[in-house]
């Protein structure tokens, strides 16, 4: 597939929904233009000549050292309950999942 396809307002809304990101209606037009500009710009990647057998590049050490498969305590100055917006008896409290039809 070639790059540089334009993106529609509906597609931006669909992707924002996939990313669990509320986007207000008033900003959709400008956001769509900006995302379109970015996608047009990165379409230069189509200029890359075909390459047989190249592998994706990964920086850093050639192999990651493995640790012993044991859990060790992480030194924390305070506990998760002190960071959480809502926390009771060792559990994070969230609202129930409703309106599944809206999300699928």
């Amino acid at each position: 597939m070639g790059l540089g396809l334009s993106i529609s307002r509906q597609e931006v809304k669909r992707i924002a929904h996939l990313a669990s990101l509320a986007v207000d209606e008033a900003s959709i037009a400008e956001l769509t233009r900006q995302i379109g500009d970015i996608l047009q710009y990165v379409a230069q990647l189509d200029d890359l000549e075909p390459d047989n057998g190249s592998v994706a590049f990964r920086p850093g050490p050639a192999s990651a050292p493995l640790r012993a498969d044991v859990t060790t305590p992480i030194r924390m100055t305070f506990l998760p309950r002190e960071m959480a917006p809502d926390f009771e008896r060792g559990l994070y409290i969230v609202p129930r999942v409703g309106g599944l039809g809206d999300d699928t």
Partner: peptide
């Protein structure tokens, strides 16, 4: 009142415009 709405509204309000743009491009 709904978990998915909580995710969306929290992230929509909490992130600024450049972060939102990059999340959308990255997801795309």
């Amino acid at each position: 009142d709904d978990l998915h709405a909580l995710y969306r509204e929290t992230r929509g309000s909490g992130f600024g415009p450049e972060v939102r743009r990059r999340i959308i491009v990255g997801t795309y």
